[in-house]
Design a binder for these strands. Sequence first.
RNA 1: GCCGAAGUGGCGGAAUGGCAUACGCGACGGACUCAAAAUCCGUUGGUCGCGAGACCUUGAGGGUUCAAGUCCCUCCUUCGGCACCA
Length: 790
Amino acid sequence: MADSIYNHAEIEKKWQKRWAEEGVFTTPDVPNRPKAYVLDMFPYPSGEGLHVGHPKGYIATDVYSRMKMMQGYDVLHPMGWDAFGLPAENYAIKNKVHPRVAVEKNIARFKEQLSKIGFTYDWSREINTTDPEYYKWTQWIFLQLYKKGLAYESFEPINWCPSCQTGLANEDLDQGKCERCGSVVEKRPMRQWVLRITDYAEKLLAGLDDLPWPESIKESQRNWIGKSEGAQLSFQLIADSVQGDVEVFTTRPDTLFGVTYIVLAPEHQLVTQVLEHVKNKDEVTAYIREVADKSEIDRTAEGKEKTGVELKGVNAINPATGSEIPIWVADYVLGSYGTGAVMAVPAHDERDMEFAQKYSLPVIRVVDDTDVLIDSGEYSSMHSEEAKNAITEKYGQKKTTYKLRDWVFSRQRYWGEPIPIVHCGGCGIVPVPEDQLPILLPEVEHYEPTGTGESPLAGITKWVNVVCPKCGAPAKRETNTMPQWAGSSWYYLRYIDPKNSEAFIDPAKEKAWMPVDVYVGGAEHATRHLIYARFWHIVLRELGYVSTPEPFMHLEHVGLILAEDGRKMSKRWGNVVNPDEIVVSVGADTLRIYEMFMGPFNQAVAWSTAGMQGPRRFLERVYRLVEKNRDASAQADPEITSLLHQTIKRVTDDTQNFRFNTAIAAMMECLNGLEKQSAVSRATLESFVVLLSPYAPHICEELWQQLGHSDMLVRAPWPIYDPALAKRDTVSIAVQVNGKVRGELTLAPDAIQDDVEAAARALPNVVKYLADQPVRKVIYVPGKLISFVV
RNA sequence: GCCGAAGUGGCGGAAUGGCAUACGCGACGGACUCAAAAUCCGUUGGUCGCGAGACCUUGAGGGUUCAAGUCCCUCCUUCGGCACCA
């Protein structure tokens, strides 16, 4: 790389400076041409800095944005920082630095790294979730949710991470462990703010249907929401001194006649209610305590044997058969799903069967192998689908349940948005009036979580003690903070109107820019960020603040860049590649092309320093080609023009569809063709440079200038594909006999079948294989092949 | 177990049912050089053959078709998501 043909360092610096000076990437307030809102999932500015994997998605959106700009679009392509959250706080605790200070430093470092890659960001729209001017509106959204009845205090046991010392949402768990630190979470009863996302389960599901998102992400969301349609049936209790019903949820009401016992989750409230009346009270109490001590993980571990205990002296009546059946308490029934109680049909449910066998409970078969009911009274010989409806109608009602849980929205940590609520002895929960926002995060001495279930803010008496906004009596601030997902659930709206301190968003601007046309980020956000953001968006739409049904139209997910050893890049493995070094050694343009060329965009591929030489050589050859031909006065050659137009089509279509690797391959093929020419026309060179410029903007800008342009390439128009010019004079087609290639012909692409057939029959090899046999059929695909069937 | 994505040269990968292996990396041979690097030219799926060429080859096995990496069936493997969800 020593004697490189072009000086990337100089060229890249020069053009980055020019772009900045001329403000070419400043986006208008409101688009006056067709608009494209191209968005990256904004990064968390960690202390590690960027590795080469981070910019992959940013390069993709930048390539896309640059093409759109040249195609005449007003492009909104902003960048910002998702800067609240645990890492900054933990760093602060460890190093005794205020998280704000660490975040500022990290942002500066990230910006420095990004600035060298040649992005088109309009930095005047930069946002930061920890800026009070930003989180004022995060708090404001919380108040709107509260007013709409979607935020409530809950005292239900929640997931508690003993290491992070905070409550967590269901979405923050990974196999029952804290997604962030890997600790096994506990169930802990504490006061929480919770958002009623479950009220929106149907809307979140329905919205997915028409979204042109990758099917895998849509499926992940559907699985997460976990809709299940069935019936709620009630079973009358039979006990000495207790009366009432047990409600169960089932997706198989057709098997009602096969119910041989009822199972309650250990945490089911009925268990406590009847405890005094069961004959084996001590046994049941001991069992419940035993289960409570187990973590969710132990309880649900794969292959674990089910355990349970019968509530002796309490029974239920099967409403269909009238027979008395026992009631059990067992760990395999979850308190948080359905009604927390199930009707057990061992004959038609594997889990019930396993349990029934262990405890010798009866098994009654009520559906045969052809899905027809047997031994089911008046429903016998009815098909099971029909019976589901009939039995539901008679013994209960239709019911739909979801796996989705309400969103535990409070954290007992310092570095997050304060929840804008005041607790008053007289008035109870009082929302902070909007004109008092933002509620600033106060300075504290220590950021450590208290571990008592209260955030460190609880210790700041000066901050906590306020007067009630409603009655003026002494009151206390809410000391929980919001989860990191809060700020990222609406940031795409803030970019549209980033400086607005008077209103949430200017409706005219919102209407002009929304929705986000292309959204790019990691697939790991499928069931968290993307669900939360959609939830808030749907609510904001109902409140009239946004105009589109969904926030993000197209979604592309970026595949990881793995380290050269095939593992994830991590400081721990010592296999991190820093983009700064690549920019120094081969330049930003090579980095951009290489990352787009490595493989399909959404696929994980391992970094290869050797492989990066290909893109570097490619750029050097382009540079040489222009240098060699820029003063030549070659005329456009029809064959070369055809090649160029085929390339225009491929690059345009592939870039539009995020198939960057094949777009680059097309340009490489085109270059291979151009290099074979003794001279290349200026028009051809110029088109080629324009096509390449979204991928390698600096070198192309330089070449554009060398070709005699004083205006900047970023403002040049995108080449338009002309099918007439792309047409080739001759093509080579395959000649097949019985499906096997036996020869080749070179002829006009639109040659008529008779001529082609005659020419094909004349080929010696074809003569040999036809061997005077009668030809049964001839298939001619113009431009592709001619096939004889004998 | 359920859902989703995928399996193609030494490697990353390409291919609206129509010449599989484009493009790139690597390797080999040559030119240039005192020499090396860089660059340029050529070769590069396998087997057989001096050659023309023949046969085989897209995870495995079946099928549809003049023609299958692509469509259908059965199965295997890998990755991702969900999971005692009633």
